[in-house]
Simulated assay, not measured.
Amino acid sequence: MSDANTTPRVALVTGGSGGIGRAVSERLAADGFAVAVHYGGNARRAGQIVDEIVAGGGRAITVVGDVADEVGMAEAFDSVEAEFGGLDVVVNTAGIMVLSPVASLDLADLDRMHRTNVRGAFVVSRLAANRLRRGGALINVSTSQTRLQHPTYAAYAASKAAVESLTLVLARELRGKDITVNAIAPGPTATPLFLDGKDEHTVERLAGPAPLERLGTPEDIAEVAAFLAGPGRWINGQVVFPNGGIA
């Protein structure tokens, strides 16, 4: 993953202190990337991830910012470029999920989700479109719920459907810049956030529909992100569904 000058490629992972974000940060570091682990509120956990990457011989820093705040995120991008000299890959894992039937949905929750998931995706994508070096990649994160239509997921799935549309259009808009733009849409994945509050029976029920008969792991998702960030240069303007065949 290094060029002739042994300069590592550089990645920014938004939401890098979360379950999938952490796995992506660690996988890209293992692939030789210098990694900026972004966090919105959990500085301690982001710092632990950086410490582990550095202890393993990698290069990593933390950056902070509200993904929906264009000024704060521009400063985060500035910090990455100042530390590592440029930016090649952005993996935008930051997002929130609130579940509710449509009939009883609290519109404040809808607004909060859309601020982070939709506006945040636009802010990060716009910055990436202007900052990534040639040969770079932007990878947004959606969800397989845009296809599964499970009850209580309407507001969350709607916010992620917007992310998919943004991704597909932006890939065409960046013609001539040699930057790929794709989305990953995971199925049920065993992150701490996903497992919180679920008993063993519920987890088994959610794992059942996949032909592989298990939940995904954060590492499964990181594998796809690493491919799109590195060798998968001919995949562009696509939504990839790492979900074990559930949809």
Rank of each mutant, 00 (worst) to 15 (best):
M1R: 03
S2R: 01
A4V: 01
L12N: 10
T14K: 05
G15Q: 00
G15F: 01
R22I: 02
S25W: 08
E26W: 07
R27S: 14
D31T: 10
H38L: 12
H38S: 14
R44V: 12
A46V: 11
I49D: 03
V54R: 00
A55F: 05
D66A: 08
V67Y: 04
E70N: 08
A74H: 10
F77I: 15
F77N: 10
F84G: 00
V90A: 00
G95F: 12
S100Y: 04
S100P: 03
S100I: 04
P101Y: 13
D106Y: 10
A108I: 05
L110T: 10
H114V: 14
N117P: 11
V123S: 05
A128L: 03
G135L: 07
G136L: 10
A137S: 15
L138P: 08
I139E: 08
V141W: 03
S142G: 05
T143L: 07
P151Q: 14
Y156K: 11
Y156V: 10
Y156A: 12
A158R: 05
S159D: 09
E164Y: 07
S165K: 11
T167H: 01
L170A: 13
R172A: 12
K177I: 04
N182H: 12
A185C: 00
P186W: 01
T189W: 13
T189F: 06
P192Q: 13
F194P: 08
L195Q: 14
P209F: 08
P211G: 01
L212P: 04
E213L: 06
R214C: 02
G216L: 03
D220G: 01
A222W: 07
V224M: 11
V224H: 07
A225I: 02
F227N: 09
P231R: 05
P231S: 08
R233K: 08
Q238M: 14
Q238N: 13
G244S: 05
